[in-house]
Every structure is written in C-alpha cells, then in structure tokens.
Amino acid sequence: MSIEISVLISGSGTNLQALIDAQNEGKLNGKITQVISSSDTAFGLTRASKNNIPTKTHLLKNYYKGTTKDQIEIRKEKREQFNKDLANLIINGSIDSTVSNYKSPNLIVCAGWMLILSPTVLEPLEKEGITIINLHPALPGAFDGTLAIDRCWKAGQDGEITKGGVMIHKVITEVDRGEPILVKELDLKKGETLEEYEDRVHKIEHIAIVEGTNKIIKELTNNI
C-alpha cells in the first residue's frame, strides 16, 4: 500500500522541495498527493505546481475579513471555523462537502506550516487515522514555538547551551511537544553569526524532513 502524503506549508517551501526531490529520485517511500498552503503567495505553491502536485490554499485572512483586532471573541470564533474547515479540507477535499474520487491522506507533513493546529483540527484527523508530523528547528523540549532558531543561537552565544538542532515530531495539542521521530544535533559555535547558524539549520532540515517522513511511513506501513 502506498502512503499518500499531504504537505502543509506557509512560505518558500524549501523543505517541501527536499521532499519533492526525494520523491523524484525514488527516495521517498510515499507519494505527495497535495500541498495545502496558509498563504496564497507562498513560493512553495509554485514548487508543487512545477512538479504536477495539486495545490490548495486555506487563508486565515479571509476568515478575519470585516473584523478588527480588538474584536477578540469574534476572531476566536472565526479562527475555530478556519480550523474546522481545514480538517474538512484535508479529510474530504473541500471545506463544505465531500469531493468525489478524493482520497484523504494517510500522512500530513507540516513543512513550514506557521499556524498552530488546535484540537478542532487534530481530533477529526485522529478519528480518521491520519498521522501528522512536524519539522521544528530545535531539540526536544527546547525553544518550543516561534523564532526557535534565533532563540537557540542566542542561548549558544550567551554560553547557556552547546547544542542546537532540529527534530521531526508527531503533532499533538501542546506545541512542539509531540513524540520525537527523528532528532539531529548541531554544535553551537561561539562567534558564529545568526545567518551562519540558520544556514546550517536549514541544510540539516532538508535531510531530516526526508528521513523523518520515511521513518514514520515505515511505522505506518508496518501497522497496516
């Protein structure tokens, strides 16, 4: 059985490109069947299209139209609707109906998806048996959430830690706290610029995203 993969992105899609390259080289043990982006200007959409991979966009800004930032409760409701619709988009192929001949993925890979996946998204996917993994540019238990690369680099320069790295982990409600699938460490170098460290992180990310995806695919295949 072939494992079908949906990739979630928000930006340039360099990690998506690593997965596409691995697929084109026969080194990805599943098939990327769609890419969903939270931004309609994400270059990752172009990367997918160039490789004949179907794309969809799911834009939070569309849900917030007509509201202001001080309308907190209304925006919470809009965000919850966005989350419900994202789950439907993944499971059924559309936010409001089931698309004929659509097959939901076995695996979701978050490769630079910049929005938190709430229980409103995660619980329906779990019921459908869809596994979700995420790439995070920090070691387990360290620098959860945003700006992880910057925070890790600063801690290294301040002498607080000597190791950074990246991990692929299962997605749960707690941000970046899911079970690690793959961890790759990097030595932190005194005097290294943030840009230099960031470059090293991105290079190892491109390796980790493929290895971690293949590792979870093997686990899923063994459980079928």
Rank of each mutant, 00 (worst) to 15 (best):
S118N: 03
W153M: 10
M167L: 12
T98Y: 07
C152L: 12
A155M: 11
N88V: 06
L147P: 00
I149C: 09
P137L: 07
L147Y: 15
I130R: 08
D150S: 15
I161A: 01
P137T: 10
L135Q: 02
G112W: 02
L117E: 07
N106Y: 01
K154Q: 15
D96K: 11
A138H: 07
G141F: 03
L135Y: 00
S97R: 14
E126D: 12
P105F: 08
G141C: 06
I132S: 05
I172W: 01
M114K: 07
S100A: 15
I161L: 04
L147N: 15
D85W: 02
G112H: 04
G178A: 07
E179N: 11
L147R: 15
E174S: 12
P124M: 08
L115V: 03
P137N: 03
L122M: 08
V99Q: 13
V171Q: 01
P137G: 09
L125I: 06
L135W: 06
Q157H: 04
P124Y: 01
G145N: 13
V99T: 14
N92D: 13
T162E: 12
G178E: 11
T131L: 12
T98S: 13
P124V: 08
G145L: 11
K163Q: 09
A138Q: 00
P124W: 05
S97I: 12
V175E: 04
M167D: 08
K154V: 13
S118P: 02
D150F: 15
E128A: 14
E123I: 13
K154E: 15
N134Q: 02
V175L: 13
Y102V: 10
D96V: 07
G112Q: 07
L117Q: 01
H169N: 06
V171N: 05
L86C: 02
L86S: 02
G165E: 01
E174L: 12
R151S: 13
M167I: 08
D176M: 05
H169F: 04
G93W: 04
G141L: 05
I133K: 04
I130V: 01
N134L: 00
N88P: 05
Q157P: 05
S97D: 14
S100W: 01
N106K: 11
V166H: 06
N134V: 06
C152M: 13
I133W: 02
E179G: 00
P140C: 09
P137D: 08
H169Y: 04
D96H: 09
D176S: 09
C110W: 00
P124I: 10
G165S: 09
T173V: 14
A155S: 13
P140Y: 03
P140N: 03
I172G: 00
I90V: 09
V166N: 09
A87F: 06
A148G: 10
D85Q: 10
P119F: 07
G159Y: 04
D96Q: 07
D85A: 01
I91K: 06
D158E: 08
P105C: 09
M167C: 11
G164N: 08
G141I: 02
D96F: 05
W153A: 10
G178M: 08
N92Q: 12
A148C: 11
Y102P: 00
N92L: 12
V171E: 04
